[in-house]
Design a binder for these strands. Structure first.
Lengths: 392, 392
DNA sequence: GGCACTTAGTCAAGCCGCTAGACTAAATAC
DNA sequence: GTATTTAGTCTAGCGGCTTGACTAAGTGCC
């Protein structure tokens, strides 16, 4: 149980401050009077709260909005020059960083291609730090904090506990070094979780969904009620190791028939090779994925077969997730944002068959509209959301 | 998004009232001063809040507690004669009802053996109603409300949407009739959910676990952070239809290889028959389960083999659930409370292999200490908890 | 152009719930 | 019996919200 916390007037103030700020953030350019109506507070109170938000530079007031009857209200918007968030993503074969302002706009973004499997984590972190300093210098904004996205399981303390595709990084606690160098608070989170948040904040803005992020591994981020679902210890969403076929191939995690071994990037490429559709795997993996996209677009039957089988496997794993968690929307991201359209049919066939609520509760499958930078944007966005959630 | 709700002084009052009440409920017999210390409120405030709770008959004050230095405090306890909860459970082959008082004590409990597959839902409800009226008459307590436990998927509106083992009941909205007859508010929920809550309130009081309730079907109730996890539409926890073996036997839900078909009650009995361990299934199913328990206790190799296989299947499904939801404890209930001890070894072997966080986050498997009446007690308890949560 | 009307935002009084600190009550310790 | 200790209450004061009146700044119509 969480420790008992008494409520006082400050609690009320904080709550209402958050309420008003949320309304300003969602509906753009509303006046004090409109905010009062939307929140149920009085105009007097809203005015006082807004004054406070303006004083802390979170909100700015635009010129009055002529055209309607009566005295025009002054539109209130999130201050685009207020505290911003810095996001860093260290992935298997690239590093990116970006700055997102309070309104959610990306103000700067840089990427470096580099194979992080090769160098030491120390070297990788130095590179990431340089990139972060560059994007920070690109903009003239106060940066409130940093979030780092990593491709693996991150525990509550920010330590990367498991990263099958970046094994040298396991056990790394990256936050302290970054925090000291940048002189900012640093958070760390799983790449799929942050991509899911990006989907929530910058994508379709649905409150309940699972984002399936296919990369070399298969991860998932779950958003329920507009909040990231982390589970008891922050390890929720490990879809990649749900069993699809107990007699399937052995996985790095020690078990057999994990989804990742059947529908992960390497499995797809390998199967396409075996089917003779693409050439040997000595080519870089991104090239192989591009080849798959091209061939599928051209209607190559062998590739389509591979993708259809991947859809079936995804369906088995996702059906288990839907039955256990109960969410109404699946968003395909990462690798599957590119390849998912050819797996959709077998995926939804499988889901229809295996999801127990099928028939009276619709299950929607979408393809992510965000590009490959979902995770960095989510990382930077999570800093901004943190500022908005605690408007001290 | 939930609709914007402004906070005012009333909000604070409600919160603190709940805080004090929770402290009174958990630590028995604490004085106002002790409550003030525990909650962080002042003694003045606690006194005012307690006065209100006493006035609404939720709390009563005992005689002062001599023996220590200084003026003795008056212990405050939940009023055993305050508003009580009435629970009803309609299951496949029995109906029970019970009354639980504010302190959580069962004040009356009755069960009728009856096969609800045979009669109409109308007749079943009448029977349940009679039983409810009897337990209500047994006690001299004001009853605040009723919760009905049903063996199937119940949606947010209280309608039983799917009940594979009580097919005639599908689509039934039982609350209105009961509510009118008893002149009380009536809630409806899934039997496994309520059993999980019973485990939380009357069992080991862990804040995070999944209760696996094996009956004819296999259900699960998930408690996270001391609260029932329901998912977006209240359908979370359908463990019985997680796929264990895609090439396994066909299930009533339309898919193949669902857990229920491999480790549910009927599957276990059938397998034991095939192995020649028990006699023909024309005997009543409860008898068959009792036979299994007896044979397993006696060390019958065939039955032990069946149970070991069930443990493996459970392990596959539970590993998926743990990977996706991330909870640290599994409680085996229902059928598995009786038979689980012989499935534990294969179950935990399978979990160790398939749970991705295995190795640094322990996973605890327990056997429920509550009997078969977990669901009714949870149902009655949920009424009581509702009263305690909203002490208006 | 002027007046009525409408809507936005502010000001002053009051209420409610909490806190602080003094005060009363009721026990033990010596 | 007095000192000490702890429980519970009483009174004043403060912060935050509400109410209703007031000022500000537009449009609409003559």
């Amino acid at each position: 149980m969480s420790v008992a916390r008494p409520a006082g007037q400050q609690t009320v103030r904080r709550h209402n401050l958050g309420l008003v700020l949320e309304q300003i953030a969602t509906g753009r350019g509303r006046s004090r009077a409109q905010l009062a109506h939307a929140t149920g507070l009085t105009r007097t109170t809203v005015s006082a709260l807004v004054d406070e938000l303006v004083a802390t530079r979170l909100v700015s007031e635009l010129a009055p909005d002529r055209g309607s009857r009566g005295r025009p209200g002054s539109p209130l918007v999130l201050n685009p020059n207020g505290p911003a968030g810095l996001g860093i993503e260290i992935n298997v074969d690239y590093i990116s960083a970006c700055v997102v302002d309070l309104t959610g706009a990306v103000r700067s973004r840089r990427t470096t291609i580099t194979d992080n499997r090769l160098g030491t984590p120390r070297a990788g972190l130095r590179r990431a730090l340089r990139l972060a300093e560059q994007v920070r210098a690109d903009v003239d904004l106060p940066v409130a904090g940093v979030t780092l996205a990593l491709p693996g399981l991150v525990d509550d303390d920010g330590v990367l506990r498991r990263a099958p595709n970046l094994p040298r990084w396991e056990g790394i606690d990256a936050a302290p070094a970054l925090s000291e160098a940048l002189r900012l608070p640093v958070g760390v989170d799983n790449e799929a979780n942050l991509a899911a948040l990006a989907e929530l904040w910058f994508g379709d803005a649905l409150p309940d969904f699972m984002l399936v992020s296919g990369e070399v591994g298969v991860g998932a981020g779950v958003v329920l009620g507009g909040r990231l679902f982390r589970g008891t210890r922050g390890l929720a969403g490990e879809l990649g190791h749900v069993v699809v076929d107990p007699s399937g191939p052995r996985c790095g995690c020690g078990a057999n028939g994990c989804l990742e071994q059947i529908a992960g990037q390497e499995a797809l490429v390998r199967k396409a090779e075996l089917a003779g559709a693409i050439s040997t795997s000595t080519a870089d993996p991104n090239g192989a994925v591009a080849q798959l996209v091209a061939l599928a677009s051209a209607g190559d039957a062998r590739v389509l077969q591979v993708l259809s089988e991947a859809g079936t496997a995804l369906g088995v794993a996702l059906a288990a997730a839907v039955n256990v968690l109960d969410f109404p929307v699946i968003v395909l991201g990462g690798l599957y944002a590119q390849l998912g359209r050819w797996a959709l049919e077998s995926l939804s066939t499988e889901l229809d068959q295996r999801v127990i609520s099928h028939g009276w509760e619709p299950l929607d499958i979408r393809i992510s509209t965000l590009g490959a930078d979902a995770a960095v944007r989510g990382a930077a966005g999570s800093v901004v959301q943190g500022v908005l959630a605690l408007p001290l």
